[in-house]
Design a protein around this nucleic acid. Structure first.
Lengths: 217, 217
DNA sequence: TCATTTCCCAACCGATTGGTCGGTATTTAC
DNA sequence: GTAAATACCGACCAATCGGTTGGGAAATGA
């Protein structure tokens, strides 16, 4: 093994996908999202798939690995999805909107997994799985941060409180996962677009009381 | 024992406050916020207070009533706190800012209870407790909705997407409870004020591409 | 064909859970 | 003083949990 650090071959989560495995993950995601990690037992998951509890251990080594696989694959796919969606958009405001729209589209496609990702992450204690998820989360946050930063540098975004904008965007994502239900009148994408509009232009008709277009830091 | 038809007294939550009861609620709130409702056992709560598990049943009739009392008293107090804070503020933009600032102040004062309120509400299944909490939540949401509506009527807020603004404000609250930690460099109130600024005036230096000051509905 | 791997499960295990019971100690009320 | 509340607990219970064991059936590959 030619490696500086003796590192055992890291079996990244979800390398071996099978239809059965995906089915288990899908069912479990729905149940975890609705009733929490501790609120769902393995017999329930197994029963919902039509298997016995013991058989789950043929596909996963323990309960937490089921949760971890859901979380990691979801946030990994989200990063890829967003990167692709904003790749060809350069103007900062449009890029911010594209980011939020992509986020909403992904959410609508993988709603259960996404809800698990956002609300059950704290149940993921096993370091290997947790660290892998955190890596992807950092990457995700860097994406939105760089969108804001580039907008400030380009002179089209206010320079005085970029952190608040990042927070606003992250909050919108969290809010969506928390309250959005697919039966409502609006699609997630529509909500995201309106949201981008509010963040970009504000709700007030007046201009801000103090000068806001400012120097870069 | 004359326990054949032991009727439980129907009393509103937190009518009889005692120091011991408050202590239990305080300790339990911290544990629920950190590790979830199912993640904390009654022996742990009892031990942290310095009591036995059996004694908890002298103050509460079951585990869920502990959670329910935390949730209901917190959201009830929040409503009172906010009402008082915005009572003397009339200009819509200032009123929106005051709402968010009061929210942040309350959060800093009752952080654990507030986190329980926002993240463990789904564990509250007992109808009596749940309904009481929902009543207060509706009242809370009506408060922010009316602030936006009044601003639109007064002609100082854009009239085209009031729902998005309400969502933005609610999202900020959830975000705060989710990510804010008291050790950070900023106080919750500072974050709230910046947030209000973003929501009011937006991040873009340009004006919106289409006319936004519109007719009332 | 036959050996191997994949897929599956009934039965079991130790640990822990929310909740109960019967009782004691302490405080309060008259 | 004494009776009634109030405050407290050790020991117990039925249920459920995540996880294990040992092996059966079915597909796979030679």
């Amino acid at each position: 093994m030619a490696s500086r650090r003796a590192r055992k071959p890291i079996a990244r989560v979800a390398d071996h996908r099978t239809p059965r495995k995906d089915e288990i993950l899908d069912v479990a995601a729905g149940m975890f999202a609705e009733r929490g990690f501790d609120g769902v037992s393995l017999v329930e998951i197994a029963g919902a798939v039509g298997l016995s509890k013991a058989t789950l251990y043929h596909y996963f080594s323990n309960k937490e690995e089921i949760l971890g696989t859901i979380v990691v694959t979801t946030i990994r796919d989200l990063n890829a999805f967003i990167d692709k969606a904003i790749a060809d958009v350069n103007e900062p405001a449009a890029r911010l909107t594209a980011f939020l729209e992509a986020q909403a589209d992904f959410f609508e496609l993988h709603q259960r997994g996404f809800q698990v990702l956002l609300t059950r992450f704290s149940n993921l204690t096993e370091p290997r799985l947790r660290d892998e998820a955190v890596e992807w989360r950092v990457n995700y946050e860097n994406t939105i941060k760089s969108i804001i930063r580039d907008g400030v540098i380009a002179g089209v975004f206010r320079a005085d409180r970029p952190n608040s904008v990042v927070r606003a965007v992250l909050a919108s994502v969290y809010w969506l996962a928390r309250w959005y239900r697919p039966n409502g009148p609006q699609r997630a994408r529509d909500i995201a677009r309106e949201w981008a509009d509010v963040v970009l232009y504000g709700v007030s008709i007046k201009r801000p009381p103090v000068a806001t277009a400012g120097k870069l830091r």
